[in-house]
Amino acid sequence: MSERFDALTDQHISFIEDQHIYFVGTAANEGSVNVSPKGMDSFRVINQSLVMWLNLTGSGNETAAHLRENDRMTIMFCSFDRQPLILRLYGRATVFHPRDDGWNQRAAQFPDYTGARQIFEVKLDLVQTSCGFAVPYYQLLGERPTLNKWADGRGREGVEDYWQEKNTVSLDGKDTGIASR
């Protein structure tokens, strides 16, 4: 039922473009494993072996902390409507903050979200599909405007202050790398 691929195919890329949600999994060398749902217009396929996703400000910053110790990342897409399918992207990730060289070039590929916090670039090692026969049907009602309203209300400087208050340390007490302004 599952198939392995060395890189994304055109069919995989088309499937990704149709999805409205994806999940990101990371783990440091020790401590909690993190899986985060992601949405909005925040994912890009650069080529068949390279993807990027824009991380918006949230209550935690586990992914960034984990990558400081271990660069492994899994991204999962699954179909909730048509033909069942699960698509997993396994790879090695690099984090880019707004202060980093290369940020502007990468950020230009996404909408200008006030809450943009990091961009993760993932070099793919393995692509895997599986059936998804047990994934239930769900219907998309729309995107939530809440996160953008929150960030826009604070403004960029207020968002960066929030990073210092809430996003500098992971659940396991690991540095997220965001405090270095």
Rank of each mutant, 00 (worst) to 15 (best):
I16W: 00
M40G: 02
M40T: 10
I13C: 04
I13S: 13
H20A: 10
P37K: 08
N34L: 01
I21N: 08
G39F: 01
F15T: 12
S42R: 09
F15R: 11
G31H: 03
G39T: 12
K38E: 12
P37F: 02
A28R: 10
G39L: 03
S32N: 11
V35C: 11
Y22A: 14
K38C: 10
V35Q: 12
F23H: 09
F43L: 13
S32Y: 02
D41R: 12
P37M: 09
S14P: 01
P37E: 14
S36E: 09
E17F: 00
V35W: 01
S32W: 01
V33N: 06
V35G: 09
V24W: 01
F15E: 13
M40K: 14
E30N: 12
G25V: 04
F15Q: 14
A28C: 06
F23R: 03
G31P: 02
G39N: 07
M40F: 04
N34I: 07
M40E: 09
H20W: 02
D41V: 09
A27L: 03
A27M: 03
F15V: 11
F43Q: 03
G25L: 05
G25Y: 00
G31T: 07
M40R: 14
A27D: 03
G25K: 02
V24L: 05
N34T: 14
G31C: 04
D41L: 08
I21T: 15
S36D: 08
G25A: 15
T26G: 06
S32I: 10
T26P: 02
V24D: 05
K38L: 09
F23G: 05
E30W: 01
G39Y: 01
T26Q: 06
M40P: 01
D18F: 00
S32K: 11
V24S: 10
D18Y: 00
H20N: 14
V24K: 03
V24M: 08
V24R: 02
S14R: 14
G25F: 00
S14K: 11
F15A: 09
T26N: 05
V35T: 12
Y22W: 05
V24C: 07
T26S: 14
G39P: 03
V33Y: 00
H20D: 15
S36W: 00
V33D: 03
S36C: 05
V35K: 03
M40C: 04
S14W: 00
F23S: 04
E30A: 07
D41I: 04
Y22M: 11
A28V: 13
I16P: 02
Q19F: 01
S42G: 10
D18R: 13
K38P: 02
G39A: 15
Y22E: 13
D18A: 15
F15K: 05
G25S: 15
D18S: 15
Y22K: 13
S32L: 10
F43H: 04
I16M: 06
G25C: 15
S42K: 05
I13N: 05
H20S: 14
Q19S: 08
G31M: 06
N34H: 14
K38H: 08
N29L: 08
I21P: 00
D18L: 10
E30P: 00
G25T: 14
F23P: 03
N34W: 01
